[in-house]
């Protein structure tokens, strides 16, 4: 491998951008395909599939063997709201190997007693998000029911390319939320990215069941075929 290719691969990973190193086994020829270049690559279909599964693999295309070194950033979930549902989400996310960050400026909620071992940021969402950043491997979930806290987070998420955005609340609550976001300049295409009511429809009742429904929807967005751009 050329050192320049290895450097580029490492640089993409450090920047939390996905890429695939394609090695032709027969000839040893190699090329690095960045996530943004996959669609136009001759191996687009298999590259996209392996990237969604975040799995390196040997593939055979038209008689040629290729090894794909897949580098997908570690997915993570950013939540506003140190609430009951996020208390249930934290241990589940750990089992799913998803990093989790909870933002809640209300220090009575965001305590390490309620969230042992969880990264808690007790700043306002716009400040916290400016620090941690949101990207295509981040899911954003708004859970406070309080527009003062959820809305700045949602606005930041809508300006980013988060792979999932969800917001807790009834259809009525969400309709009012869309009105507020529209007033802030977000059109229907933008607000249409928000999953609301949040979570897969499994009839969830308890906080843990709602957490399960949300995480299932996040996994589905992460692993399923990319939604076609509207």
């Amino acid at each position: 491998m050329e050192l320049s290719i290895l450097s580029a691969l490492n640089a993409e990973r450090t920047a939390r951008r996905a890429s695939v190193l394609v090695t032709t086994i027969e000839s040893g020829a190699q090329r690095l395909v960045k996530a943004s270049e996959i669609a136009t690559d001759p191996l687009a279909e298999v590259l996209d599939k392996q990237l969604r599964m975040a799995k390196s693999a040997m593939v055979e295309v038209e008689g040629a063997q290729y090894f794909l070194t897949v580098q997908a950033p570690h997915p993570r979930i950013v939540i506003t709201g140190a609430v009951h549902v996020s208390q249930a989400m934290a241990p589940m996310a750990k089992l799913l190997d998803l990093d989790l960050v909870i933002i809640d400026p209300r220090t009575a909620f965001a305590t390490s007693e309620r969230f042992p071992g969880v990264r808690l940021l007790t700043e306002w969402p716009d400040e916290a998000i400016a620090t941690i950043g949101l990207d295509g491997y981040t899911a954003f979930v708004a859970l406070t029911h309080d527009p003062k806290i959820d809305d700045p987070g949602l606005e930041a998420a809508l300006r980013s390319d988060c792979f999932y955005i969800g917001a807790l609340g009834s259809r009525k609550t969400h309709a009012r939320r869309i009105e507020r976001l529209a007033a802030a300049g977000f059109d229907e295409t933008a607000t249409g990215r928000i999953h609301a009511p949040i979570g897969l429809d499994i009839g969830a009742v308890s906080p843990a069941e709602i957490a399960l429904a949300i995480l299932a929807e996040i996994v589905s967005s992460l692993r399923g075929p990319r939604r076609k751009p509207a």
């Binding site: 491998m1 050329e2 050192l3 086994i25 090894f67």
Partner: peptide
């Protein structure tokens, strides 16, 4: 297992 071994070529 199958293992691919390659040299990292210096620039």
């Amino acid at each position: 297992i199958r293992v691919y071994v390659e040299r990292i070529a210096a620039e």
